[in-house]
Design a protein around this nucleic acid. Structure first.
Lengths: 364, 364
DNA sequence: CTGTTAGCGCTTTCAA
DNA sequence: TTGAAAGCGCTAACAG
């Protein structure tokens, strides 16, 4: 870089560097005449202020950290856009980090970010108590939790009412006549997964249906379990180097779907598990929705065109990201901000749910 | 932040700040005794070096810019992970920017990044000549082009052989007996789109099939055109505020698909257009592959489970991101690096292509 | 209305 | 084996 400093601009314009700084930032009155000279010098030298130096001087970097679990999760993918679009308007940059649901990796990212003097942080925490995170909050860095919450972290959360969404989904299934409804979730440390499980339970209890551990399937969020027949294609398992912690949804569903007392409906509590479930249906020879109904939390862009079109509980992912960004911006600016309440979800009925099969297999 | 500076550590340990700096960075010999004192002070004060100050002093921020077109494009989503995983290992942070294929937005991002003193840049340029970008290259900032190239920008490109991939896809269709093969592409400024178009043309010419402008459909990359019947669901159109530039693939395909001399096969040159094409098939009452075959460039994770499972040309997206990161890292470190050649693509045959219908509509 | 100057927290010669 | 001190480029009192 042919480094051009404010000093160079000052010399060229025949003014002091203070004046240069002030016209760049509009931070005090400068006569029109000198302003023009400075502007001219800036243009002819192609001067770009050094944000690092500015950051040192002002203790504000105009950068925020955005820590999510996995960018290839379509929910986060669009939430990230909500955050980014909002901050771009304010001239902020975002530093992106994926945790892969790995507390250690989360910690690495947070360490790096702590060092980088970010002005604020938006995080979808892994759910494992994190002292770096707590320390940052303690240190007064503005932080927002997006989608889910971290233990002991007393900062605003932008998310939806997961318990209610899961409850509605399960109610819908019950209304269709289902009595054997399984729940497919991923990691228990994730607050949204626990909440969705609760909603499922509440609906079952309310309908006097048994809540059996056998119908709760806990799968690894990273793996669809579809790799074998698609070798060479886009990674259908996570490309990360992270070791698999639990069996995939596909593997776990084999047993339960082949059992004579199999569920007549499946509530999928995480969008990362939907493909695995669908694949398991296929290999077990189950037609959806004739043999088994499926409803999932979170939508996919291909869901309306799938066979069958998938019924789902949808979250306003873009608006969540946007809201998180707006709230963080207010906190950074020291403005009083009221923490918004949880956003509503919406049940989108398509065609993956039907009445249970009438072969008697649905007797509870 | 209860700011702890190296000065504080120095005082606590009874050494100079120079020594603190050297034990933190391992940049000159320090006796074991003093090192222990310093390390102890660091731990007890919970000292974190200020990366901004370090950046000012060393003129290296350990941050790189990653400018892509759209994070919700699954190709970029996994390429980004490749870049990120690689840089995380080296303690680098990445600043993410989406251009939305909008040259103006691209320019904004680049301006911001130029200011941020990034150590390097990985970019999937919009394809419109960009003077900020050229200036950065001129200034000696290490830059890699990912996936596609920008006019006049003489920096390494990490990507695949698009012309060849498109050629193979079209050959495959021709081998099946198709003679009326349409090509669906998006923006012409995108180098990969032009290359894929060329590959399609080459295959047709080689088979002595006519290359007609009528069979080239140019659609807007942002819009699937499926919004109407999925109101309230996940955004099936881009959530961005960017105005639509061209009609969606869905809209444009209506005419051509309803024509009596409609194509018997469609080569989709961009993954963002696949859903729109599929939707158009449905509303036009065309079965795939019985009435019309479809092959797309880039795979989707749901493609193997779709009805029909989608045949596609696959790119090693993760490895592309990783390779770009590795090459950039070498450039940053001033190591001699040979620019790798284009990576190969792979044709994954599933079930969305078949022989053309025998009703005579395929006579060229 | 504008200039001087003392930092911001760190790295890095140079000297000891 | 370690310290002193001069910057890195910018902002923001303070002074005029």
């Amino acid at each position: 870089m042919a480094k051009v400093r404010s000093k160079d601009v000052a010399e060229r314009a025949g003014v002091s560097i203070a004046t240069v700084s002030h016209v760049v930032n509009g931070t005090r009155f400068v006569s029109d005449e000198t302003r023009q000279k400075v502007l001219g010098a800036i243009a002819s030298l192609n001067y770009r202020p050094n944000a690092v130096a500015r950051g040192l001087a002002t203790n504000s970097t105009r950068k925020i950290g955005l820590v999510i679990s996995e960018i290839s999760n379509p929910f986060f993918t669009v939430a990230v856009r909500g955050v980014e679009d909002e901050f771009l308007r304010h001239g902020y940059n975002i530093i992106l980090c994926d945790t892969d649901e790995d507390p250690e990796r989360e910690n690495n990212c947070l360490h790096l970010l702590a060092t980088q003097q970010i002005d604020g942080l938006i995080i979808s925490p892994t759910g494992v108590r994190n002292t770096s995170l707590l320390a940052m909050a303690e240190a007064g860095i503005p932080i927002i939790q997006l989608d889910r919450s971290s233990p002991d972290l007393a900062v605003p959360l932008i998310g939806v009412n997961n318990e209610e969404g899961a409850y509605q989904a399960t109610r819908y299934l019950i209304g269709l006549g289902h009595q054997r409804i399984a729940c497919l979730i991923n990691l228990d440390v994730i607050s949204t997964q626990r909440e969705r499980l609760k909603g499922w339970e509440r609906a079952l209890r309310e309908a006097n249906l048994p809540v059996s551990e056998d119908f709760i399937v806990r799968a690894d969020p990273h793996f669809y379990g579809i790799q074998s027949d698609t070798a060479g294609s886009l990674p259908l398992v996570s490309p990360s180097t992270q070791p698999q912690k639990a069996p995939s949804a596909y593997e776990l569903l084999q047993d339960i779907l082949k059992s004579p007392r199999r569920p007549s409906a499946l509530f999928v509590a995480s969008n990362q598990l939907t493909l695995g479930a669908l694949y398991a249906f296929r290999t077990c020879g189950l037609r959806c929705p004739e043999d088994i109904s499926l409803i999932s939390f979170d939508d996919h862009d291909w869901a309306p065109l799938f066979s069958p079109p998938l019924t789902a509980v949808c979250q306003p992912a873009y608006r969540l990201g946007q809201a998180a960004a707006q709230l963080l911006m207010q906190m950074i600016n020291g403005e009083a901000a009221e923490v918004p309440s949880l956003m509503p979800v919406e049940l989108i009925v398509r065609a993956s749910c039907a009445a249970p099969p009438m072969d008697g297999s649905d007797k509870a």
